[in-house]
Each structure stands twice: as C-alpha cells, then as structure tokens.
Design a protein around this nucleic acid. Structure first.
Lengths: 203, 203
DNA sequence: TTATATAGCGAACGATCGTTCGTTCAAATT
DNA sequence: AATTTGAACGAACGATCGTTCGCTATATAA
C-alpha cells in the first residue's frame, strides 16, 4: 500500500535486512583478512559490525555458511576481470591490458590474505574447491579465446595449446603478485617487464 | 658409568626423549594436514600420538611453537631439492631432472595441504614468512646458477635474467602441481610436456 | 645408596567458542 | 485497530580450547 511513498527517505524492512546482511558480510571479510577464518569468532564479527551476537544467526545458518558465502563472492569477483578480455579491442591489446589488470588485482595484500585462506579451506572442503575452480575455469576460457586469436595473428608455429598457455600465464601473474605481497612491496617495473617478456615467449 | 652397555638394547633417556619429541612432531604434521592448524587441538595430537596431554608441553612451549617448528621443517625440506641442481651433470640435464623432481614434490597432496596452511599462517606471522622466503631464496639461487649456465650454452640473445627466469620456472611448476592436486589427479604427460616447452621458451 | 632431575600423566582452570533461546519491538498484513 | 511477522538483542548452554599443576616413576648423578 504505502510501499512507494517512503522508499526514498526510508528503506523497506526487506531492504534494511538485506543491507544489514551485506554489512555483516563486509565486516566478516575484514575480520577474516585480518585474523583468518578460524581465528575469527562470531563475536568478533558482531562487535565490529555493531550488531548483536544472536542477530548474525538471523542472517546466516552457521559460521561455515558465512565462510562459504564469502568464498563464493570472492571467487565471482574474477568475473569482472573477464571484461577486459571480452573488449572489442585488438586481441593483443586486450591481452596486455588484462595482464595489467589481473596483476593489480592479485597484488592487493587483502586479496592475497583472503585467497590463501580460502585455498586452505578448499583443501578440506570440496564444495569450496569447486566454486574456486569453476570461476577460475571461466576466466581461463575467456583468456584462452584471446590467446587463440593472438596466436593466429602471429602465425606462430609449434605454438603451445591455448589452454596450457592460459594456465601458464595466470600462474606467472599470480606468482609474481604473491611474491611481491609476501615481501611487502609492489612488483617493480623491471619485474613486470620480465613478466611480459616471458608471456611473449610462451605465446 | 653404564652408558655404553645398554645402548644397543635400550636407548638412553635423552635419546628416548628426542624420539618421543620427533614422534609428536610427525603426528602433529599428520593432524595438521588432515584438519589444518587451527582445527587441530593439542588433545587431538596427544591422543593420536598415544601421549598424554600435559606431556606435549614438556617438549614444546606452546601450540604456536609447534606450528612454527613444523613450518621450519617443511621449509628446510626444500634443501634436498637442491641436490639435483648441484649435481655434476650437464646443466641442461640437471635442470631437466630438477623439473621432474620438484614437480613430483609439489604434486603430493599432503605437501600442498601443509604448504597452503603455512602460507595462510605466513600472511600474519612475519617470522614464518621469513623462514618460508629464506629457504625459497636458497633454492632460487641454486636454480639461477644452473639457468645461467644453460643460457650460456644456448648462446641465446635477449635472454631473460636468470633470477626472473628461475622464479618463473618455479611458478610454472608449482602452478601445474597445485592445479593437479586441487582437481584430485596427477599432472598428465601432455601437461608435463607443455610445461617443459614453456620452460624452454622462457630460457 | 641416596638424592636429583625429568619424562610422563591426567585432572583441573579459566577463557572462549558456536549456537540456542526467550524476549522485545516495530513493520507489515489483515 | 488488531494481529502476525521477523529483525534485533544479549544472557545462557554445553563443549572445547590452550595451558597449568601436582603427582608418580624412573633414569642419572652424587
């Protein structure tokens, strides 16, 4: 009846609940990054989110459900990376800009902390491992498509299969980023140049 | 006085203590691989090792000290990998055999589980991160030496710097191994062949 | 032989964990 | 206006955590 009227000044109950839920998720992510999954208690999250302990269980079935949801969200973040690959620019340009974007993405310490945490969880939870692998496969497929085009343009002989090529390129980018994060610095220009050279050779 | 007499049939007190300590460490490793650091309790380890709860604290100061020790042991396992690199065989042969050995090493699911766990710990504990990074640097240096020789033999122009090259090669091997482990299989011959091709190109 | 030191034990401690529960209160529905 | 719904709360529960402590027994030292 009066749904529309107060939309602008005050959100509906369902909207407020969704916002609260999302706020809890975001706070949980911060806690998990800082302390890890199993060193973070529900009380930690509740306190930091300014929410009661019991209320968290109105929005999530259990702590592991909250972890699983965050793992899914983090995995689906990869989808945004595919935009750079689907762009209508020349394949080679698209690939170059993808390298830049993905390296930046992997170079964020927060991303590394969360990814490693999810990886450790994925070792024992096939459900999380699946979500992780599935989204990575999507990115891989998109990358593979561009690589095939680039190889066609290069008319390269004895080229590596695009699938292998795509996996290797991701490995190189992730490896460089992780090394930088763990030594508390950013990848140097020299390192990035070497990365691009290595990718060129692999193509 | 009677130290020597019973050495063969019964170990001295110090030896027995050392053996017990090592047995606890090995049991802890198994528990940590199966359940992760923070999902494993001291009681789990004690029970599985057939040792009393309190006795563990006669051998280790705390749970985190036990974790740190295991992280150190695992990191120093990398040293054994350098043997293949220091061998007196032709550089190219040494490098090839290293690729095989390191891929096998990284392909063990138990190794992956423990490494990911240590990595997650290293994000928040600089001491563990240092131990991890230091041992990796040693391996890297050894690999770098062989790469320099191989490049010299190839008389390649515009070759990548041996340091970068070494890091990239480790990234490729570790990436392939991790992918295989997480999908519950072994690296296929085709994948290994692709890996070797990629390494050839990078050199 | 006597004294000392230490590995081994398991009950016990205090803290904290994930989760449940009864309750309150305001929004939504009738 | 009356009723129902569900978000929000925080005390409470039972379990488990890392760690400590007093104790026994035995190898070593004196």
């Amino acid at each position: 009846m009066c749904e529309v009227k107060k939309m602008s000044e005050k959100q509906s109950r369902a909207e407020a609940a969704d916002a609260r839920r999302q706020h809890i998720v975001q706070t949980a992510v911060i806690c998990f990054i800082e302390q890890g999954f199993h060193q973070t208690s529900i009380r930690d999250i509740a306190k930091r989110a300014g929410v009661s302990l019991g209320n968290i269980y109105n929005h999530f079935d259990s702590k592991s459900a909250l972890i699983a949801e965050i793992a899914t969200i983090e995995a689906s973040d990869l989808e945004k990376m595919q935009d750079a690959l689907s762009a209508a620019s020349p394949p080679r340009t698209a690939l170059d800009s993808f390298v830049t974007r993905y390296l930046d993405y992997c170079s964020k310490p927060a991303h590394t902390a969360l990814t490693v945490e999810i990886l450790a969880e994925a070792v024992r939870d096939p459900k999380i491992a699946d979500g992780f692998g599935q989204n990575r496969d999507h990115l891989l497929a998109a990358l593979e498509g561009q690589i095939a085009k680039v190889q066609q343009d290069l008319k390269a002989e004895n080229a590596l299969a695009p699938q292998d090529c795509a996996e290797f390129i991701l490995d190189l980018i992730e490896g460089l980023a992780m090394r930088a994060v763990f030594s508390g610095r950013k990848a140097t220009d020299a390192e990035i140049k070497a990365l691009r050279t290595a990718i060129d050779r692999i193509l």
